[in-house]
């Protein structure tokens, strides 16, 4: 079954589209809304967005794959993003990722079978002073080590 936006979201989309001189200029805010509503943007959602904006699904695919924040498949409840850039790597982010891989039993880019955790490695999170750092959903955690991560993850339901 092809996805449909809720009535409330449809109204919101109309408002957003009205802000731009060209319909397709609204594509990024609409993709964010799609992501919130469906949790992921697969081919079905791409086609939905394309239909609303009167463009081809391939144009939506170009944007969805260009950006990293539009996952194709639904993420876990907690999205763990670990920085793998220079400062964090120098302070042991590599070992830290290895620890998470072992603890969660998934590789970066994967989600645990219970859909609780998704692990990703990302480039700089802009918090080098607290390296090695990570984000869980929208919260920052710095100066990470295995002990600290155990405490944080165990506190999540």
């Amino acid at each position: 079954m092809s996805p449909e936006f809720s009535e409330k979201t449809k109204k919101k989309i109309e408002e957003i589209v009205a802000r731009y001189p060209q319909k397709e200029a609204a594509i990024l805010p609409i993709l964010h809304i799609t992501q919130q509503e469906f949790g992921s943007i697969s081919a079905e959602e791409e086609k939905l967005v394309a239909r609303i904006l009167g463009i081809k699904p391939i144009s939506v695919r170009e944007l969805v794959t260009f950006y990293t924040m539009f996952p194709k498949e639904s993420l876990g409840k907690y999205h763990i993003q670990v920085c793998s850039n220079l400062s964090c790597s120098l302070l042991g982010a590599g070992n830290f990722v290895d620890y998470l891989v072992e603890k969660l039993g998934i590789k970066p880019g994967e989600t645990t079978p219970d859909k609780k955790f998704t692990l990703s490695t990302v480039e700089c999170l802009g918090a080098c002073e607290r390296a090695p750092c990570m984000m869980i959903n929208f919260n920052y955690y710095g100066e990470m080590d295995p002990k600290k991560v155990d405490e944080i993850l165990d506190g999540l339901k």
Binding site: A43, K56, I58, S59, R61, E62, T65, F66
Partner: peptide
Amino acid sequence: TQDLGVFHRGVHSSVNIYEGA
């Protein structure tokens, strides 16, 4: 007809076609 597009970015960029198209 817009059959081809550039997917992904940086070193992963590639010209591609929509599945089934």
